[in-house]
Structure formats: structure tokens, C-alpha cells
Design a protein around this nucleic acid. Structure first.
Length: 416
RNA sequence: GGAGGGAUGGCCGAGCGGUCAAUGGCAGCAGACUGUAAAUCUGCCGACUUAUGUCUACGAAGGUUCGAAUCCUUCUCCCUCCA
């Protein structure tokens, strides 16, 4: 059945991770012959990764699960430059302290998905600042710069698109791909890394690295990219009303994370199960066949599994349970966002719109009013007709007032 | 160095002396339909306890005017062309 010799390539291809590879057969043979080390570069532009990076993280996870060594590379050095790929404007430059803090935050995300350590297949987190910061300009130009032609660089999409749109591209950013290519060679020399993975937008940069390795280190390097993951309706992964879906629990709670996956579009369920969970393919194939209402069961599994990977079994169970109570029983789930108030805070009563604002279901009082006027607000599951309704502390049932904005957004007010 | 063009709400983009809290589109929120989906249709979409009210806002600071996003001056940043 298997089309490939190595478990690694068989897994990655059958689960939908393959977009392009520099030499799929060669890589397959190498992976079948013994453990290899592979890396993916991550920018240190925020203190957490988000769902947009999850495909890459899952690739590293499979690297490890199939007996190889995953090496997440932090762009401590390259973050000071900014990748021009896919953007018209230059990135803001970050200073060292911020980058260090970001790297520490990102490390916590990785801990969930990879096993770190010093064993042969244990992950090690690397930072390209180690070799980039002390780089000497003239030697670098002579050793590395000579292998890059401007002619070639101008044809790279990241550069070409910027120029075609007549957007400025600074020399600083122009150097990004050279440094990324150089990273690969350094990683080969230092850690015997022979495979770079990345998103499809990194293809050009990856190929540069593979070629540079062949030229200056006689290394046989491989590049492998995964497709840019979008939803079936074309939206990029990981963007919601509230902003990016971060992997950090402080930014996005396990419950919200669960809900994010629970609300996946029908057409994406199978694909996402393959990409974002560890479930066996056979099981996923079975779930993909579910149609109509039944596909919701598959979405619950997707939500649970994705949350379990990131936040652990207990948090996933709790999130699923909260969702079940809230949506299927119309009751009160424990994990809903909650604010605390005392009976004294209520005084003679608080207007309904104010309560919605305080509970975080509306950004401003005006928005809360509009929500109620538009008929989208509920208090203890009763539709609110009057935005000025005076809510007393006694409105609490078992010490809790449940507020709802629409069908999906709920919050609790605990009255003590 | 010289000559032009531009900077408008989360984004794109109209407006070019009053009727402008500012047309449109996108995004977002809510309602209907459903399955906590998608698509579609409808409403909302600066803030203020809502008020034919006040305040803040059209790059920044001044000025002209009864009145300025719109006119003038200076400044900042960006782009294009010439040298």
C-alpha cells in the first residue's frame, strides 16, 4: 500500500503536507536509511505562535514521531531583518530584549508538541543569532555572497512581487534570503541537518539554501514545503474576529481554541483532521464520509483532538464539556468567560447594556446598546427587549447571571 | 539638488468651503434560514446612561472664514520623474 519507503515521507504525503520537494525520492531513501535531522525556521516577532504556524509545528511533530530529529530554529538573527515574502511593507524591527522574550514564549508552544532533550530523536531549539550576530561582512560576502546572483534573486517571488507592485524593498530585506540560505549550511555543519521544511512561501529561500549547501559544503540537502493552508472559503487560517488564534493559553483560552476548531467549515473537516491531529488515517476517512448534521460529530473530535494536543487531555475534556452544556443543553458551562461582581456593585440595579459591556461581550456601551436593539442579546437565555432594563443582583440564578451575545458568545457574571 | 503627486475611519477608497461622523467596497457584529457549517438575504457598524445633545476624528502645527477633510503657510513621512 505504501508508496514510499520511509515512514516519514509516507506519513507527510498521505496526510496532505506535501506541496513541493526538491528531491522526493532522494529524501525518501535517505529517511528510510536512518534518522535525519530536519529544521523549520520561525520568526520571533511575537511571544506566541498562532494557528497559522501549526502546520509547520505538526510537520516537526511527525518528524519526531517517525523516528527523526526535529529542530525548530528561532530566527533570532533574521528577525532583525524581516522576511519580505508575502508582504508589501517592511516589518518593524525589534530589539534584542523583545526577541529574547518572544523566543521564550514560543518555546512554551513547542513544548506541547515536541519532546526536547539530548537523545537522538529529541528536539533541540536553535537560534540563528548564534552565528549571524557575529558574522563578518567582508568574509561573508566573499564566501557566501559570490554564490548568489542578483539576476537569480530578482526572479524570486518574494522580490519580484514587491518590485512589480512598485513597493520599496530595502537592501536590508533583500539580504534575508541569503541569510536564510546560509542558515541551512550552518545547520548542516553544526548539527548535520539535511532537511528544511517550511510553508510554500518559503520555497525560494529553501532552494537557495539547498544550492548553497551543495556549492560550499558539498552537502546533499533537501527542501520540503507544505501548502499554504486556507479554509475552503479562502480565508487564511487562524484569523477570527478577536484576532489571531494564538497557541498561548493566556491569549486564547482552551475553550476558545476548542470552539475555533469546532466551527470548522464542513469542507475542511477531513483535511484538518489529517493535518492537525494525530488520528490514524483510517479513522479520518471514516469520519469524512459523514454528511449533513452528522459531520458535527467529526468537528467535535477535531476540536477535542486539536485542543488535547495543545492544552492536554484535561483541558480538552473541560472545553468540550463546557461547549456541550452551553450549546446542547442551553445550560451554563463552567468554562465560559466570567466576571465577578458583588451584590453591592449592583446597588439599585445596573442597566442591561452596561452589564454586557462589563462582561466583555461589547467593546463599548454604544455597541452593547446596538446589540440589544438588534435583538441579539440574551440574559439568562431570555431575549432582551429593553436595553435600559434594570438588572438587579437578584437576577442571578445560583449566583450566576448568564449573558449571551448571539448564539455563540456567552459570558457569566458571578454575583457574590 | 530640481519638478510634480500623495497622506481620509480596522483595511481599500470617494469627498475637494456649509446639507460630512464623512458615499462605496472588504472585514466585523447581530437577525433570518440551518447543523455551533458554508452560501444567501436583512439590520448595525467613532465615543459618551441615547441627547432634533456633547465630544473626538480626515498626517502634524498654525492661519483665513460666520463655517474647513475641503482654501493658505510651515513641518513630517511616502511615491514618481529629471539631475
Amino acid at each position: 500500500m505504501a508508496r514510499y519507503k520511509s515512514e516519514l515521507i509516507e506519513t507527510l504525503t498521505s496526510r496532505g503536507f506535501l506541496h513541493q520537494c526538491t528531491d522526493l525520492e532522494g529524501l525518501d531513501a535517505k529517511a528510510a536509511a536512518g534518522p535525519i535531522s530536519a529544521y523549520i525556521g520561525f520568526d520571533a516577532t511575537a511571544d506566541s505562535l498562532h494557528v497559522g504556524s501549526l502546520v509547520q509545528i505538526m510537520m516537526l511533530r511527525w518528524i519526531q514521531k517517525t523516528g527523526h530529529r526535529p529542530m525548530p530554529l528561532m530566527g533570532g538573527g533574521t528577525t532583525k531583518i524581516g522576511d519580505p515574502s508575502g508582504r508589501d511593507e517592511s516589518r518593524k524591527l525589534l530589539d534584542d530584549a523583545m526577541i529574547a522574550a518572544n523566543i521564550a514564549g514560543i518555546r512554551r508552544c513547542f513544548d506541547r508538541f515536541l519532546t526536547f532533550g539530548s537523545g537522538p530523536t529529541d528536539a533541540v531549539m536553535l537560534n540563528n543569532a548564534v552565528w549571524l550576530d557575529g558574522l563578518q561582512y567582508i568574509p561573508f560576502l566573499r564566501d557566501v555572497g559570490r554564490h548568489f546572483t542578483i539576476n537569480r534573486m530578482l526572479t524570486m517571488d518574494s522580490v519580484k512581487l514587491r518590485l512589480e507592485r512598485e513597493q520599496p524593498l530595502t537592501f536590508l530585506e533583500f539580504n534575508y534570503m541569503i541569510l536564510q540560505g546560509y542558515d541551512f549550511v550552518e545547520l548542516y555543519r553544526r548539527h548535520k541537518i539535511t532537511l528544511q521544511l517550511g510553508g510554500s512561501d518559503q520555497w525560494g529561500n529553501i532552494v537557495q539554501g539547498v544550492e548553497l549547501g551543495r556549492r560550499i559544503a558539498e552537502a546533499e540537502l533537501y527542501g520540503f514545503t507544505c501548502p499554504l493552508i486556507t479554509t475552503s472559503s479562502g480565508a487564511k487560517m487562524g484569523k477570527t474576529a478577536a484576532g489571531a488564534v494564538w497557541l498561548n493559553a493566556e491569549r486564547v483560552s482552551p475553550y476558545d481554541y476548542y470552539q475555533y476548531w469546532r466551527n470548522t467549515e464542513d469542507a475542511d473537516v477531513g483535511r484538518f483532521l489529517k493535518l492537525f491531529t494525530d488520528l490514524p488515517l483510517g479513522e479520518i476517512t471514516r469520519m469524512e464520509k459523514l454528511a449533513g448534521n452528522e459531520i458535527n460529530e467529526a468537528k467535535k473530535i477535531l476540536g477535542f483532538e486539536a485542543t488535547r494536543l495543545l492544552h492536554g487531555e484535561a483541558a480538552a475534556t473541560e472545553a468540550a464539556e463546557t461547549a456541550r452544556k452551553t450549546f446542547e443543553q442551553g445550560g451554563i458551562g463552567e468554562n465560559l468567560p466570567t466576571i465577578e461582581m458583588t451584590a453591592a456593585d449592583f446597588g439599585a440595579g445596573i442597566p442591561a447594556w452596561s452589564l454586557f459591556q462589563k462582561a466583555g461581550l461589547a467593546d463599548s456601551n454604544g455597541e452593547a446598546r446596538r446589540l440589544i436593539r438588534g435583538g441579539g442579546a440574551k440574559l439568562n437565555d431570555q431575549k432582551l427587549e429593553d436595553e435600559n432594563l434594570n438588572v438587579q443582583a437578584s437576577a442571578a440564578v445560583n449566583g450566576v447571571i448568564k449573558l449571551s451575545a448571539g448564539k455563540k458568545r456567552h459570558a457569566l457574571v458571578k454575583v457574590s
